[in-house]
Amino acid sequence: MPVDANPVEARAIDWLIRQRDPDFDDWEGFADWLAENGEHAAVYDALASLDRDLDVLPRGSGAVRIAPAFPPGSPVSRRPSRRAWFGGAMAAALVAVIGVSTLNPFSNGTRIETAAGEHRTVALADGSRIEINGGSVVEIDPDRPRFARLESGEAMFHVVHRDKDPFVVETGDARIVDLGTAFNVVRRARQTSVAVSEGIVLYNPDRDKVRLVAGQAIDAGDDDRRPPAVRSVDLTSIGGWRSGLLVYNDAPLALVAEDLKRTAGIDVRIAPAAASLSFRGALIIDPDRNRTVADLAALSGTMAKRQDNGWILTR
């Protein structure tokens, strides 16, 4: 779904693109456009300034690996603004294994339940971290420092590597044995999604034998008979809920609504007529909910109306 810039922005963009040509010489034409309306210079400046910030984008593949946002044990805020640029060395040769679970009865567990829109980071004794999205339930056990269970919802795991002592994450009937990596797990109704941002994951090595490397993801239904298909995901979008950015590539609107509820506590219902629409694009969770929903509506070609405490998207 293309995003339309407003006409002034569209013109400013044209100038920006043309001016990147070293032979550009229509400065008079540019001046005429600026003179048309006093607002034009401000729009141009804002875009040209963002454009200049792109100078730091790395050349080559264009894919940037997300370094761990914080060193283990450091205080964590929800919206950090100035992190060290790509700081932190990447852990090398990380391998994780997802296996079929054995039931682990909880004796002494701590249950962490987040309300819709509430994000929480749990630092574990070994330096590993679990970033828990809203509307989720995670269980940890002080007696088992290398274990966590995602009962429902979504969490991003950053696991510190220990050769002889793998970290185990359980969800649904799957077991994720992690040897030091970072990955996001979503547990929806009868479905588990895993996206890997660092390291390597083996999904159900005894049964499905699916290998996931950084930048790959799977969606596995509890009733699936076949191994889940591996798809590519943009590294920068994995666990995007943590920074308030949700990226979709043709996702059903209902799934987007579910994520909005969990991540930001925003209630969005999808009218039956709009249920077949899919969404493609990047959605930013704005402090102003109206704006987030308006963006979703605009980007998905729907209309948003208030309904009860939330919104309904119609065609």
């Binding site: 990147r20 454009d51 910030d53 984008l57 264009g62 997300i66 990226v247 694009g281």
Partner: peptide, 30 residues
């Protein structure tokens, strides 16, 4: 002027425009 986090969002937004536009943009701008 933008934070690292915003730069990540920029990259994600570029990627979200589709494979071909994102590739063309990288060739052109980067």
């Amino acid at each position: 002027l933008i934070s690292r986090q915003q730069l990540e969002q920029v990259q994600a937004a570029i990627a979200a425009t589709g494979e071909r536009p994102a590739h063309i943009f990288r060739r052109f701008r980067v």
